[in-house]
Design a protein around this nucleic acid. Structure first.
Lengths: 101, 101
DNA sequence: TTGACACATAAGAATATTCATATATAGTAT
DNA sequence: ATACTATATATGAATATTCTTATGTGTCAA
């Protein structure tokens, strides 16, 4: 843990805030947590795991993909999503490690 | 960095998502960053540092205080805010350390 | 008490988010 | 081509967020 604490510049703040906002939603955070633990999941699996509507799952997944948080790969009829932003993984680890969550 | 990756329970997800949402706004993240670097600042100082309206500063500060992210102390005519949620500090460190921000 | 300064709050308009419903598209098998 | 499954998208209603403007409150000093 470095203690430099340099001021974040405006563009860094915007970028980081956008990422944090993106994962700062219960459904999206659950998806992130699931993908962090399982590596990859298709839409139906995510939808069933969280007990949400198909459209809602798809909407959140597409939002996170648009923001660069997730990436997807199609395999036949299935689309598998995984985490694509290392900052997101770090924040999840941080939450697990330091916040008793 | 432990690698346990236990599933976050519903209430942990809600709590964490609320905190992340709270800091996932450019103005609020800048305030967090400022307070992380300086320890404590009064409203006018924050307002001038960020170049925002007094009411906006006050609104964001009060929001973060309501969510348990910040705490304030009055000294005469000034009100000084500081970070009151260790998870927030950890996330900021995490961003600094791992994300080249 | 009055004035000045620091901060908080109320109210509302503009905008954004979220979810539900319905429909569309893509891939696969028959 | 048809049917079926998986996923995406369009639309709109309900709600939430953000900012601006205006006003209120607290503290201190004269």
């Amino acid at each position: 843990m470095t203690e430099s604490r340099k001021k974040l510049d405006v563009s860094a703040v915007r970028t980081a805030a956008a990422m944090l906002k993106c994962i700062g939603h219960p459904v999206r955070l659950q998806i992130i947590d699931l993908l962090d633990r399982t590596g990859e999941r298709n839409v139906t699996a995510i939808q069933e795991e969280l007990g949400i509507e198909q459209a809602v799952a798809s909407q959140h997944l597409n939002l996170m993909q648009d923001k660069g948080v997730l990436i997807s790969r199609r395999d036949g009829v299935n689309v598998y999503y995984r985490i694509d932003d290392p900052r997101v993984t770090e924040v999840i680890y941080c939450i697990h490690d330091h916040c008793d969550l």
